[in-house]
């Protein structure tokens, strides 16, 4: 089922609630079973994210390099919390736990592209890139 859900999310930006019934019918499962899978995995959303998505690593290696403080300052500046999208719908900031870039911490992924050795200046650049 995971490949189907990934494909749906690639097209719609989320797994729309309306798709749950279709997937259930196709796989001969109950809607509850499909909903159970969709809701179990952090990746699948019910609503599309903002136009740009920043996944910020909050795991230990990034913590050791002051990642939490930088992340908090950035969220405060945008006026959002983890997982939120800015009111104009342009930008979503999500927590992630490890991108495997731990020797170049703190790290993040902006629209699927890795960025590391983050500093205050990197966050300024990210904000500029996404028009915030």
């Amino acid at each position: 089922m995971l490949p189907i859900l990934h494909d749906l999310q690639a097209v719609f930006g989320c797994v729309p609630p309306a798709a749950v019934r279709l997937v259930a019918d196709a796989l001969n499962l109950t809607r509850a079973e499909v909903h159970g899978v969709v809701s179990f995995y952090h990746d699948f959303r019910e609503q599309p994210a903002g136009r740009h998505v920043l996944k910020l690593c909050r795991a230990e290696a990034c913590q050791s390099m002051d990642g939490e403080r930088l992340a908090r300052a950035f969220l405060d500046r945008l006026g959002v919390e983890w997982g939120d999208t800015t009111p104009d719908g342009r930008f979503t900031v999500e927590a992630t736990y490890c991108l495997g870039l731990c020797a170049c911490a703190p790290s993040a992924m902006l629209d699927g592209e890795p960025i590391a050795r983050l500093t205050q200046a990197s966050f300024d650049e990210i904000a500029r890139e996404v028009g915030q």
């Binding site: 089922m1 995971l2 490949p3 859900l5 990934h6 796989l27 159970g36 899978v37 179990f40 995995y41 952090h42 990746d43 699948f44 992630t96 736990y97």
Partner: peptide, 26 residues
């Protein structure tokens, strides 16, 4: 090749197998 979906626990072998079978990664 199969792609996970952001669940850390799927690194546990039996949970990974459940996930490969298309279920919740329990």
């Amino acid at each position: 090749i199969r792609v996970g979906a952001g669940a850390y626990v799927c690194g546990e072998e039996t949970s990974l197998l459940e996930s490969l079978e298309g279920k919740r990664g329990q």
